[in-house]
Write a protein that binds this DNA or RNA. Structure first.
Lengths: 145, 145
DNA sequence: TATATTGTAACTATAATAGTTACAAATGAA
DNA sequence: TTCATTTGTAACTATTATAGTTACAATATA
C-alpha cells in the first residue's frame, strides 16, 4: 500500500457515527463496517478526538460518538486531523553548489503550498452531512444500528 | 521516505534544462545538481519524454534537452507525467453488508476526484519558465553551464 | 575502433502503513 | 465487590513503495 488510507477511513467512520446519531458505537462495530482491525480504528479516532470531532467513553457500555452535528464537521478539518505531511514533498539533497540546486527548494515550496491550499480548500466544501446524503440519497433516513 | 519526490525532482530537472537552454546535459550532470543517482534521473526523464516534454540522444555527446520552450511546459502536465496514483486513496475492504460500507466508495470517489482536480488546476497555473524566474529572480539571466 | 551515453532490468536498503497481539486502566452491571 | 467490557497504547510483524545501486546491451560520435 502506498499512500495513507486514513482520510478515507476517517470519513467512513464519521459517516457511520453520523448514521448512528446519539447512540455510541464501539471500535469493534466501526471496524466491522470499515473492514479492518479495531486498533486501527481507535488510532484514527484518537486523532479525530484530538481535533474535537468525536468523543469517547471507556469501560463497559463505552464507545464513540460525534462531538458536533454532521453538518458542522468539514472534511478539510478531518483531512488535517489525520494528515501531517503535505501531499507534494521536496527532494532531499539538491546541490547547493549549483545555482539551480541552491535555490530550487524555496521556489518549489511556493508552488507546493499553493497546491496544498487548493486541495484543502476543495475538501472544505464538503461536510459529514454531505457524505451521509450521498450514502443515503433517496430514503428518508432514520438511522442505522 | 513516504510520498514520492519524483514531482519535485522533475521540476528541478526541467528548470536545470531550461537554464542550460539548447545545450544538452547528461543524466550525470543533472544528477549532480539534483543530488541523486543518474539512473534515478534517467527513469524520471523517460516519463517526461513519454509526455513530450524532453528529448534525448544516446551515445557520445548525447544527453537531454527540453522539447518545448519553458513557458509552454505547465506543471500540471509534469505532475501527471510522473504521478499515476491519486493523492487521496480509498480504503480497501468496506463491508458490503453495512449500509454505509456498501455505498461509501462512490461517495468518496466524488470528493477525491474534486480534490485531485483542484490540486492539478492549481499546478496548471505555473510553468517551468515561472520556476526559472523564481530561481533567478533579479539577474538578467544568461544561462548556466 | 574507442569512448561516452542512453535505456533498462534486477537487486538492495530504507521507510511508511496496516494489521496484530498484549495488556493496563477505566467503567458499568451483577 | 467482582466480573465483563471497552478504551488507550505500546510493541511487534508483514507488506509495499521508493530511492538508490549495479550491471550491461544498444547507440552514437569522433
Amino acid at each position: 500500500m502506498n499512500a495513507s488510507q486514513q482520510f478515507a477511513v476517517s470519513v467512513h467512520i464519521l459517516t457511520v457515527l453520523a448514521a448512528s446519531r446519539e447512540q455510541v458505537l464501539t471500535s469493534e462495530e466501526i471496524a466491522g463496517s470499515v473492514g479492518t482491525h479495531p486498533v486501527v480504528i481507535r488510532r484514527i479516532l484518537g486523532h479525530l478526538r484530538a481535533h474535537g470531532l468525536v468523543e469517547s467513553r471507556p469501560g463497559a457500555a463505552g464507545g464513540w460518538r460525534l462531538e458536533k452535528p454532521p453538518a458542522q464537521i468539514v472534511l478539510g478539518v478531518v483531512y488535517r486531523a489525520v494528515n501531517h505531511e503535505a501531499v507534494l514533498v521536496m527532494h532531499q539533497h539538491p546541490n547547493p553548489g549549483c545555482p539551480v540546486g541552491a535555490r530550487i527548494q524555496p521556489a518549489l515550496a511556493e508552488v507546493f503550498s499553493a497546491a496544498q491550499t487548493a486541495l484543502e480548500a476543495e475538501l472544505a466544501h464538503y461536510t459529514v452531512a454531505d457524505m451521509l446524503g450521498k450514502v443515503f440519497p433517496l430514503e428518508s433516513f432514520q438511522g442505522v444500528e
